[in-house]
Design a protein around this nucleic acid. Structure first.
Lengths: 100, 100
DNA sequence: CTTAAATATTTATATATTTGCATTTTTAAA
DNA sequence: TTTAAAAATGCAAATATATAAATATTTAAG
């Protein structure tokens, strides 16, 4: 019995929760800064986006909890990065679909 | 001044609202049934998914209002279909990322 | 052991979403 | 013009989400 390629009920739930995590302007912007396997700290993203530190941490936490990002602590810093590089496709697709 | 390929603030809002529309188990399932340019009526989707007619219409309305689907009425039926076929990429990507 | 930088968590309020049921509207056919 | 099928809308209760401010935790350096 191999892994199905279809989206059954529980996989639909998981897929929706991942997508819901991404579906926020700030969090899409975060993903933009993590394309190509880049790893960034909370502070870097906090400065790049110009939003509160706690808000930044909160958004990153959501993305990690829902399986979109991974994190790895190094000293005082925590680096975040895409769990699946293929997720950039979603941002790319949105760029195409919001051209007009 | 040509159309930028980047996601500025208002395009981020638009992208997020499209993605939020998709980010629901039932609505992902709906998109699955519209891949490849297929057109389906409210009733067909209502039967395929086994959910209430009004709930089906509601979900389809959200997807249309947010620019994910288009609709076209033909007699008593309203056919819904993907506004951009490329949107299937998002569903495909989710299938890949929820394999494990 | 103290301090300060970097993250993370808690809390509270405001806002938004989901769902089914009932109702209404639209359209074709009798 | 009455009827029935198909679709859309209004409503209300339960649930979920966003945000910022305040607080807490973790870690390296002094």
């Amino acid at each position: 019995m191999e892994q199905t390629k279809e989206l059954d009920s529980s996989r639909l739930e998981l897929a929706a929760s991942m997508l819901k995590a991404i579906a926020h302007p700030m969090r899409i912007a975060i993903l933009k800064h993590l394309e190509g396997g880049k790893k960034r700290t909370v502070s870097e993203i906090h400065e790049l986006l110009g939003i509160e530190q706690s808000t930044t941490s909160h958004h990153l936490g959501i993305l990690r909890d829902k399986g979109v990002l991974c994190s790895q602590r190094e000293g005082k810093n925590t680096f975040y990065y895409l769990k699946f590089n293929i997720l950039s496709q979603i941002v790319d697709c949105l760029e195409t679909c919001t051209c007009d």
